[in-house]
Write a protein that binds this DNA or RNA. Structure first.
Lengths: 156, 156
DNA sequence: CCTGAATAGTGTGTATACTTACTATTGATC
DNA sequence: GATCAATAGTAAGTATACACACTATTCAGG
């Protein structure tokens, strides 16, 4: 039995997101870790942006401020990141990786890169490339429609 | 500043899902409703499958049992669906639309169909069709990777 | 320098989306 | 027909992902 909703963009995207998160979770489990894709992205962005604060971190990976707070809480309690008050703006909290966090990230990056294709395992190489091209274009165009848009080049 | 993660399948899919949910929420708000895309899909599937119970409903729209319970709770408290114990299997709960639920769904279906294209507003008609074809193929192939796979034709 | 707008982070509340564990059934098997 | 595996639903716990309101702080203008 096929419902009309099964062909709708919103439904298909939700399904792909379920599959994507499940693949990530499964791979981490195989490595004996409890890292989520969201936590990985946050750590990656922290490493790529030394001295970043929570608000800009949220913008770089398109989360809202409340969500990033919880993500950093959990990474902090696992000893993977640290938070400290910014020197010249005491409202802001600078997030940085601990040495354990840095070591873990270094280990994870190639692994995560390698299983990305598994998420789209049903597609050929050509199809996957085309899917990613279209997804990038759509995500870019729809950025402002999202509640937590991606915010880049906000600073030097 | 472009991070490597911005080109990864998992990240792009998460972004598209944020955009998709946001568009749905926004349209509902314009109509003065507080319906989520998940609740809409549940109501749609209930209507399309008269006499369905919660477990099979979960399978038809690829939720897990615990999630569907909460979704039905909220729809029930809004007076849009009803739950009753199944006659020949007292473990199961049969879900059905109330008359208000049915009327609301009838009103929403064409509206929801019409704004699906807004989710992929950055794509041309040809690109959108190709994206949907590839997304369908990928979601289908990845079905068993998801924690809550789509389960169809389980019965007569 | 003072006031008011804007911003960073947090707290609360809601809604998915899952896990594991539990109860109540059902059905299958000996 | 008693037992035992399997199933339906729920409960409790964790983790996004948002809204809204609040405090602390910064900054812009007069």
């Amino acid at each position: 039995m096929q419902l009309e909703i099964h062909n709708m963009a919103g439904y298909l995207i939700r399904r792909l997101n379920q599959i994507s998160m499940s693949v990530f979770q499964e791979r981490m489990k195989e490595l004996g870790l409890t890292m989520t894709s969201v936590q990985f992205a946050a750590m990656y962005a922290v490493k790529a942006n030394p001295g970043i604060d929570q608000a800009r971190l949220a913008g770089v990976i398109a989360y809202d401020r409340a969500t990033i707070g919880g993500v950093i809480d959990r990474l902090e309690s696992k000893g993977l990141v640290e938070r400290r008050v910014c020197d010249h703006d005491r409202r802001a909290r600078i997030v940085s990786l601990t040495s354990e966090g840095d070591a873990l990230l270094e280990k994870l990056v190639p692994l995560v890169r390698d299983f990305q294709d598994d998420i789209l395992s049903g597609l050929s190489d050509v199809e996957r490339a085309e899917f990613l091209r279209l997804a990038t274009k759509a995500a870019d165009a729809g950025n402002d429609l999202s509640r937590a848009p991606l915010i880049l080049d906000k600073k030097a």
